[in-house]
C-alpha cells in the first residue's frame, strides 16, 4: 500500500520541524496573546491604555515612517544595482552578485556596530570631514533617525536587490530593442516598456523590506541610542525595564496584526508565494 507509506513518510519528515514550530513559536505567540488580554487583569485594558498613550502613538508613527523611508531608499539604490547587474554583462557581474549576497553572511549586530564606528561623534566619517576642514564641529550622524535610516537601508538592501534581480534577469533585452526600433528614445523605452515589467520585482522587494523593517530591533536600538524608539524596542522597554508584560504583549499583538494587514493588502498586488517562499 504505497499511498499510506507515502503519507507516513511525509509526516515523519515534517513532524520534527512542525513540533519545533509549535513548541517554540506558535505556543509562545498564543501565550503572548493570552497575556495581552489577562495581565494585569482580564479584559481589553491594555489596548485601551495603549490607544490613549502618546508615547505608543509616537513609536508607531516612527516605526512606519522608518520602515517606509527604508523601503524607498532600498528600492532606489537596489533598483540601480539590480539594473546594472542584469543589463550590463561584464566580467564583474559575478563579483557584484557576490557583494550583494555577502552581507547575509555577516551578523546584523556586527554590521550595525560597524556603522557606529563610522558614524559616531569621532567616527571615521566625522574625522575625515573635520580633517578635510569641511566642517568645524562633528555632525550628528547617529543616535537619531538619520543614523537609523542609513544603517537600516544598508542592512535591508539585499532583500530589495534579490527579488528585483531575479525579476530583471528574466526580462529579455529584446523588448527595449523593439521599443527603440518603434521610435522610442532610450529613456522612453525604459519608462514605458522596461520599468512596467520590473514592477513585480519592485513590489516584492518593497514588501519584503517593509515587513522586515516593521519588526526590526537590533539596528534601530544600536544606532538610535534610545532616541528613536521603534515599536520593537518600545516593547522590549516595557517588558525588560518596567516589567509591564501586559502592555508589552498587547503592543506585540498590534504589531503582528499590523504586519498581517500589510501582507493582506499587498497580497492583492504581489504574488506572495513567489516573494516569500520561492526565493533563490
Amino acid at each position: 500500500m504505497p499511498r499510506v507509506n507515502e503519507k507516513v513518510s511525509y509526516w515523519m519528515l515534517v513532524l520534527p520541524a512542525l513540533a519545533i514550530m509549535v513548541c517554540f513559536y506558535i505556543l509562545p505567540v498564543l501565550g503572548i496573546w493570552e497575556i495581552a488580554f489577562t495581565e494585569p487583569e482580564t479584559g481589553v485594558g491594555n489596548f485601551v491604555k495603549m490607544a490613549g498613550s502618546n508615547a505608543v502613538k509616537t513609536s508607531f508613527v516612527i516605526t512606519f515612517r522608518v520602515a517606509a523611508i527604508t523601503t524607498v531608499g532600498c528600492l532606489i539604490l537596489g533598483y540601480i544595482v539590480a539594473y546594472a547587474i542584469s543589463n550590463f554583462a561584464t566580467r564583474l557581474t559575478p563579483l557584484m552578485v557576490a557583494l550583494v549576497i555577502l552581507p547575509f553572511w555577516v551578523s546584523v549586530l556586527i554590521r550595525s556596530f560597524s556603522w557606529i564606528v563610522l558614524l559616531g561623534r569621532s567616527g571615521l566619517v566625522n574625522d575625515a570631514l573635520m580633517h578635510a576642514e569641511l566642517i568645524e564641529r562633528p555632525l550628528r550622524l547617529m543616535h537619531n533617525e538619520l543614523g537609523v535610516l542609513i544603517a537600516m537601508i544598508h542592512v535591508m538592501l539585499p532583500f530589495a536587490v534579490l527579488p528585483m534581480l531575479t525579476n530583471m534577469r528574466g526580462i529579455s533585452g529584446v523588448y527595449v530593442q523593439a521599443a527603440r526600433s518603434l521610435g522610442a528614445s532610450e529613456w522612453t523605452s525604459f519608462r514605458q516598456v522596461y520599468f512596467p515589467q520590473t514592477m513585480p520585482g519592485v513590489l516584492s522587494g518593497a514588501l519584503l523590506v517593509f515587513v522586515l523593517s516593521l519588526g526590526f530591533f537590533v539596528t534601530p536600538a544600536l544606532l538610535g541610542g534610545g532616541r528613536v524608539l521603534m515599536i520593537s524596542e518600545y516593547i522590549t522597554y516595557q517588558i525588560q525595564e518596567f516589567l509591564n508584560w501586559g502592555l508589552g504583549s498587547a503592543l506585540s499583538v498590534v504589531l503582528l496584526v499590523a504586519t498581517a494587514l500589510v501582507l493582506l493588502i499587498a497580497a492583492r498586488f504581489v504574488n506572495l508565494r513567489a516573494t516569500l517562499l520561492e526565493r533563490k
Binding site: 529584446v174 523588448y175 521610435g183 515589467q197
Partner: peptide
Amino acid sequence: PPEHRDFGMVFQGYALFPTMTVRENVGFP
C-alpha cells in the same frame, strides 16, 4: 540611433510588450 531610423522590426520571439494590450502594443509607435 535606432529610434530615428524609422525601420519597423519583427523579432524572432515577437517581443510584444507583455504589460500592454494588443491595442496598446500596435499603437505604441
